[in-house]
């Protein structure tokens, strides 16, 4: 079972004060801590679990404008066998189509049974790379995957739909799956893993190694262009409750009661 996992590094914006860049198309990332995209973390874990169960290999792949070796070292420390990073400044501002094009150029020459991506990325949330990549690779794909069972040359997956409705589908392998959070419990990186990672293969390529031309890259090649980003206006109607946890809980309960939500 050879599995390729596509990973991306994203800024952690949960507690951060977001500032829009001068050109209005991005957020200032200088002070933000960046780490593996949450969905991708589950995808890496799932790939490693399947490898541990069935044998084979896991290759982590990243396409990035930045120095993201630490992202791939983390995948290796978790248990991936090798990593490939394609780093090029021109990936800045690329849309999902460009990223999937680059991933396709890497993956098409590798042996694989399954390709995993996260369902979506925490930063731009497009949820498109997996689907477009499957199109390029001409293989079937399933999104929102919460369970995987490998059968003879087929894979049976559970897809999480709205209202907790579960769909079970069967795909011929090779296939692409976009992995949903909660499919497993990702492991912590161990010190043993870090030691092993230091000896594993990490390949850094550039776009010309992949035979990609400038026309296929970056902002100019992107079919979806960012026009601007904005922070939500501070609206009326929102009431920020203050006080201790107990006081807040009491207030919430009384509001819910007054609105008829609670009896």
């Amino acid at each position: 079972m050879d599995i390729i996992v596509c990973v991306k590094k994203v800024p952690d914006t949960r507690e951060a004060e977001l500032i829009i860049t001068k050109d209005g198309k991005d957020i200032e990332k200088g002070e933000l801590v960046c780490d593996i995209n949450e969905w991708d973390r589950y995808a890496v874990e799932e790939a490693i679990r399947l490898k541990e169960e069935l044998g084979g290999s896991v290759t982590a792949v990243a396409v990035t404008p930045d120095e993201d070796e630490d992202l791939l070292r983390k995948c290796l420390a978790m248990g991936a066998d090798r990593a490939i990073m394609v780093k090029d400044e021109s990936f800045r501002g690329s849309d999902a189509h460009v990223i999937a094009t680059a991933l396709h150029h890497i993956i098409k020459d590798l042996p694989f049974d399954l390709v995993f991506t996260g369902v979506q990325a925490e930063d731009d949330g497009y949820a498109q790379v997996g689907g477009i990549l499957a199109g390029f690779l001409k293989v079937p794909h399933a999104t929102l995957v919460t369970q995987i069972e490998v059968l003879e040359r087929k894979v049976q997956v559970h897809r999480e739909l709205e209202e907790a409705l579960m769909e079970v589908v069967e795909l011929d392998m090779p296939a692409v799956c976009t992995i949903q959070t909660g499919i497993n419990e990702p492991r912590y990186v161990s010190i043993m893993g870090i030691r092993k990672a230091a000896k594993k293969e990490m390949k850094t390529l550039n776009t010309s190694d992949l035979g990609l031309t400038e026309e296929e890259l970056g902002d100019s090649a992107s079919k979806v262009k960012i026009k601007g980003l904005s922070l939500p206006p501070s609206g009326k109607g929102a009431e920020i409750l203050k006080g201790s946890t107990g006081e807040i809980a009491t207030k919430v309960a009384s509001i819910l009661k007054s609105k008829g939500v609670l009896a």
């Binding site: 630490d70 983390k74 912590y188 990186v189």
Partner: peptide, 17 residues
Amino acid sequence: TTEQQDIQRAAREFANG
């Protein structure tokens, strides 16, 4: 070193989790 940075990050993630 990158290895030391990875150790630091692994310890942070374990502690935070």
